[in-house]
Amino acid sequence: MALLEVNEMTQYFGGLCAVSEFSVALDEGQMVALIGPNGAGKTTVFNLVSGFYKPTRGEILFKGQSIKGLKPHQVTARGIARTFQNIRLWFDMTVLDNIRIAQHHALGYGLLDCFLRTPRYMQRERDIEDHAMELLSRLGLGEVAHEFPKNLPYGVQRLVEIARALSTRPALLMLDEPAAGLNSSDVEGLIKLIADIHKDFGLAIWMIEHQMDVVMSLCSWIKVIDFGATIAEGSPEEIQNNPEVIKAYLGDDTI
């Protein structure tokens, strides 16, 4: 059984068809990419899967259960985490707090525990903090745990966002343009980091990415969409030579 199965998912905004009959099946531990020209509807696909929009038609199954129509935080609790194209950290909170809050779905205590500081509350808060610190040091962010993200360089903010997504203990990690805005040496580090995360955490990773070196060196399977419709899918080699893809990216004249 596939980990994530999307069947003929379609989304209209008013009269505009943003995503049309999108289907995909991801297995556990797979690393795949979704590419396409700007405005092709890639982020919309992520928004639909993560529950931010509800698809007009189609179904989304995760671990065999439908997650269509769930709220984003419920989807996250089921095991899908994501990052954002434009970094969306809570910039006025310490990095550590950012990571702690992303474990909200697994708090395991209620308001009364919080007022009375019951043993359960103390235990859970310690666990949450330990988990956060462990993740941060795993990603080499241990030293910035008490800094505010707004004071950190862009590349580090990207890492913090990945750490935050990981702290929800996902089975599927969706990265929305992880390499956007990074320079070439950062990109190399990022490729290595994603490969490591993929291996160590045993996750499935699904990424949107424009930089082909990232996609080609990491992903085993690529899906290309344009104007909301799938135009090609296959292994990196197949995609590189697919005339439809070249047309979508470069236009008709160049062929």
């Binding site: 529950g51 931010f52 709220k71 984003p72 935080h73 996250t76 969306r88 809570w90 809050i101 929800t168």
Partner: peptide
Amino acid sequence: DAISQDEIAAEIMSVD
């Protein structure tokens, strides 16, 4: 606080 700083991020990053 997370809601005040970025509500969408809060909702997607597991905050009910």
